[in-house]
Design a protein around this nucleic acid. Structure first.
Lengths: 148, 148
DNA sequence: GAAATGCCTAGTGATGTAGTCAGATTTAGG
DNA sequence: CCTAAATCTGACTACATCACTAGGCATTTC
């Protein structure tokens, strides 16, 4: 039931890009990795996934970096996780490839109903949180800190 | 975000025991494995986990097998998964070892709130389903089949 | 005593994770 | 034009986990 680091790193990286959304300059990998404390080399590979999925675009060369292709309000945490880790489901028999409906043999799989509910729950939750939400929450925290 | 087979096998095995609860005779591993189509040798190792956790007791020798130690209504799917796969949480930084509260560095981890919600959701759902529920659902399906 | 069962330990091949590393390519700015 | 700053690409590695298989021992019933 664990997420791998990929999903987490992906969200952290996308969050940094969301915070910089509106600045006209792309954010270099190095800056993202430094701020979030991630391995630069590893993150590079992960950014390739997000790029291929069309969620970020890259600018090569000096002063280059990455930019979101959509408004932060348009990108959900669920979208990111799907890119980084594949379909969000506790088990493959409750997935898009619904061809595999045979887990048990006699009366079908006992547990199927459980997995369906878990999946629905998690998907709804993750798709309901956008990068914008994360940014606003973070900015709210900062304001609270200021008031101290 | 995937479950391993252990959780699934654990639930299937416990379900078989729940269906036999009330019969005075223990259910042999072989019967469970056969009904659910699982590897006997592998399931043996998994049953050891459930036994050590006190969820089933075993009877050795001929006519031996396994029995639930509690009423099926008293055992939740969440309990089983915790035994088979460890704590139910999408990431270790949202776990019982709350000592590790440092994911990011500046303002804490951006994603923490997400994981907490996911965890809460899934835990509540899984703890809300008992083996008895599974049995009743299965028996309901059978009745529907009879009416055809 | 034989058959049926659980108990225990060791080993194994495949897969995935989380990287590291080296080098090629592209671009801005002086 | 040169250089430094970036991304792009592919190969490689160390480690852990998963899902088993296999074999032998211990216990109990008939």
């Amino acid at each position: 039931m664990k997420l791998s680091t990929r999903g987490k790193y992906g969200i952290k990286a996308m969050y940094e890009l969301a915070m910089a959304y509106g600045d006209r300059t792309p954010v270099p990998l190095r800056a993202i990795a430094a701020k979030q404390g991630l391995s630069e080399n590893y993150l590079e590979q992960l950014m390739a996934l997000l790029r291929d999925a069309g969620m970020v675009s890259s600018v090569r060369g000096a002063k280059g970096g990455y930019v979101l292709t959509k408004h932060p309000g348009q990108i959900s945490v669920g979208d990111i996780i799907r890119v980084m880790e594949g379909e969000i489901t506790p088990t493959d028999c409750v997935g898009e490839h619904a061809e595999f409906h045979h887990c048990g043999e006699s009366a079908g799989c006992v547990a199927r109903g459980i997995w369906e509910k878990v999946k629905q729950n998690v998907v709804d939750l993750l798709d309901g949180i956008s990068l914008l939400d994360l940014c606003e929450e973070a900015r709210g925290e900062l304001r609270k800190d200021d008031q101290k």
